[in-house]
Design a protein around this nucleic acid. Structure first.
Lengths: 237, 237
DNA sequence: ATAGAATTCAAACGAGCGTTTGAATTGGGC
DNA sequence: GCCCAATTCAAACGCTCGTTTGAATTCTAT
């Protein structure tokens, strides 16, 4: 009887099949980034990876499981890097970190990943940005699980650095921060919405984060709701 | 011979078919919002609208044309409202507007739309947020066309209110602003990424924009790149 | 009342999708 | 050299998709 699915953990190390698996993962990263999850067919994917159509189901089970593997392959190490960096800064610095330091511990690992072509480079960060906006329930569920720990960890750090903000207020601000980051990372032709974008591609990423950071820092430090005059939102309502 | 496509403009006003067309548009708005463009089938759509499957192709041509109609139905009036409000403020106020006023002229029409259930309410704004992150080329092309005029109009206004920013710097900041807005508007379960969200649904939207505005204002007013010490992004590189 | 256009309808078309199957092939341990 | 598990492969399955078709129906202007 033919194997309907490979044993979850076989005797042999998967270095044997690593070539096929890696080729699939690399092609999937590229195509999911470019067209999204739904619009990427397994036929175009396996064709791009030069593997048999059935290889995806054999090695990963389903298309959804493949997508999750594509994400975790890069995200797990990057998020671990973030936490490690944050804790290193906490040990080194004064009693509480400032906003700039905390934010940099989020952005630096992302930038390192963007620069490292062997870990997917910019393509992968775009994929994450796209995934954050994907309506598919399994993607949303997966991401919230994947990020929940990291986010609550950062929320505690920011709370100490921003004592004027209530927990609820900070929750919203982190929401806005994630929005700006996701949208920026996901931007492909989005750039073209706003005229010219100069600079070489190499330094483009660093420049981008150098511009994003001051914006986010200032936003996070802004006075809390109620500390300043409200916007008059609806005149005569 | 049966009509393969209705004449672009018929003698009769389309009040005759308005019922079917509107039912399709309303159902499309709801379903595109919930599942995205690709994942929404015309069969589920026409079933939800209680119309025949072929009605979409008859009234709108293709699924893509339907999607664009869904967006323009609400976006065109809202963007016009934005421009009108901006120009009214410019006439009333001093020689140049401050950042708060300009931003409010962007957010107020959006909030009005969110409150108006007859114009789609919150669902529609979520749909716009989703569309901004959709990788489909025809959606990206359509949105950039639809928004190009409004964005360049706002860029000029912000340039006057933020003289310390170069044109390029402002381009990026507006990019970040659009990101935070899109992500926030698109947030459905995204909220659940960050713990509790209280308040009744009625006042939730106003509260949300009241929180978003100070964040964005502070970010826009932040010192330009180079005016302050750079983040040390990669230690020992 | 009737002609003619506009709309609705059930049915089908062709294509592409994710997944499964069972045989063929490969590769390492005895 | 042989065996058995792991992998690859071509082919097919069942399903859903957007769109088209041509007849049936509804509506309107004369």
């Amino acid at each position: 009887m033919a194997a309907t699915r490979p044993a979850r953990k076989s005797v042999v190390v998967d270095a044997t099949s690593a070539d096929t698996k890696t080729r699939i993962l690399d092609a999937a990263e590229e195509l999911f980034m470019e067209h999204g999850f739904e619009a990427t067919s397994l036929r175009s994917l396996t064709s791009a990876a030069s593997v048999n159509l059935a290889a995806v189901n054999y090695h990963f089970g389903t298309k959804e499981e493949l997508f999750q593997t594509v994400l975790t392959r890069r995200l797990d190490p990057m998020n671990q890097e973030r936490i490690d960096l944050l804790e290193k800064l906490e040990r080194e610095g004064a009693r509480s970190l400032n906003v700039e330091k905390i934010l940099s511990s989020m952005l630096i690992p992302a930038l390192r990943l963007a620069r490292d072509e062997k870990r997917g480079g910019k393509n992968f960060l775009r994929l994450v940005g796209r995934a954050y906006a994907d309506p598919a329930p399994f993607i949303r569920h997966f991401l919230s699980q994947q990020y929940a720990g990291m986010i609550s960890r950062y929320k505690e750090a920011f709370l100490k650095a921003l004592p004027h903000l209530s927990r609820q207020e900070l929750t919203w601000r982190l929401h806005f921060v994630m929005g700006a980051i996701s949208y920026t990372l996901a931007g492909t032709d989005a750039h073209k919405l706003f005229a010219q974008v100069t600079a070489s591609d190499k330094e483009n990423d660093e420049l981008l984060l150098q511009r994003l950071a001051p914006f986010l820092v200032a936003g996070l430090k802004a006075p809390a709701l109620g500390d300043t005059r409200k916007l008059e939102l609806v005149s005569g309502d």
